[in-house]
Simulated assay, not measured.
Amino acid sequence: MSSTTRSRRVLAVSLAGVAALLLSGCSEGADGGSGDGATSLGFVNGANTHFHTCLLKAVEQTAEVKGAKLYSANSKQDAGTELSNIEDMIARNVSALIVQTVNVDALEGDITKAKNAGIPIYLTSVATDDLSDILGAAVVDLKKVGAMDAGWIEKDAAGKQVQVGVVAGAPGAASDLLVGGFKAALPATAKVVANQPGMFNPAKAQDVAENMIQAHPDLDYAFVANEEMAFAVRKAFDAAGAEDVKIVSVNGTEEGIAAVQAGTLSATVANSAMTIGQTAVEKALALLADKNGDKISNVPLTLVTKDNVAQAPQYCPK
């Protein structure tokens, strides 16, 4: 690995992270934002899950309030499309570029391309080692997210030997940090007996869960990399007569919090897409005005269980 690659190694990634279909090309006005201010922002979103939809809405609304013109594009989990979207934003000569990357490895080319064009990048959910390469970042500590779910399992298992299944997201991005943090924080008494990607796709996650419970009928817990997949996993387990498998997940969506309250999910870690989007726009604009400000903003995390559902932050803008 070269020193350049090492310098841009990702330290933290969101949620992971993530349902309405977004246009893959750039848009403005009703689709991409509004405002006739002198400052223009480009937003390159990573996918079309509920997380990304809420993130876009938060970016749009905050840009409008701040009087910044906004262009948006969606990369649909494809690193090549992400780079093309960034090139389109460069052609528009935006004042700054906000990026929710699809893959941590894609950041190398993204940052270089924008830097060479003189357009600063503000990252949502990620931060790089060399902060001089970026304008700033709104960071979700995904290793900590996974660890918080693992901590709930440790407390609930109370020292018993237990079997744990993992339904991951898409390899190479937020999911890797989530799962890594989760597995590292599990107690020695908890054994991960299965770990398969659900690709942030509920239908795929349901297939994975059906196979998992057949192979491991004594499964005690499952960690699922987002709530949309977790609902499908719950459906598969229940259909197999495994209603007692406890599921922990990530996001803190309105539906996820309701599922925790109902007992469908045992716990979830809330990291508000609304907060991430608002922070990204506000901080990007502030750093354009004063580059000496704090570059890194850590997004608050809340482990939500039946005992504290009222404390869950709002996930998506109205």
Rank of each mutant, 00 (worst) to 15 (best):
G198R: 05
G172P: 06
R234W: 00
A205I: 05
E228M: 13
E228Y: 11
V193D: 06
A215L: 11
V233K: 08
P171G: 15
A236K: 14
A230L: 02
A188H: 02
D220I: 04
V193P: 08
A185I: 14
F200C: 09
G180K: 05
F200D: 05
P171K: 12
V167D: 06
D176E: 11
A222D: 13
A209N: 02
T189V: 08
A205G: 04
A173M: 07
A194R: 03
V193N: 08
S175H: 00
P171A: 08
A174P: 03
D220H: 02
V192T: 09
Q214S: 13
A174V: 05
S175Q: 00
E227L: 15
F182Y: 06
A185K: 12
Q206D: 05
G181Q: 01
G181Y: 08
N226P: 00
Q214Y: 04
F200N: 10
D176S: 04
F223D: 09
D207S: 15
E227W: 11
A170T: 15
A215Y: 07
E227Y: 08
K183R: 08
Q206N: 15
A173D: 14
N226S: 11
P197T: 08
N195Y: 10
A222L: 15
L219E: 08
L219W: 01
P202M: 09
Q196M: 06
K191T: 12
A215E: 09
G172S: 10
A236G: 11
A174W: 07
Q214N: 14
F231L: 12
A170Q: 14
Q196S: 06
T189E: 04
A168V: 03
A170V: 14
G172K: 04
G181T: 00
E227M: 15
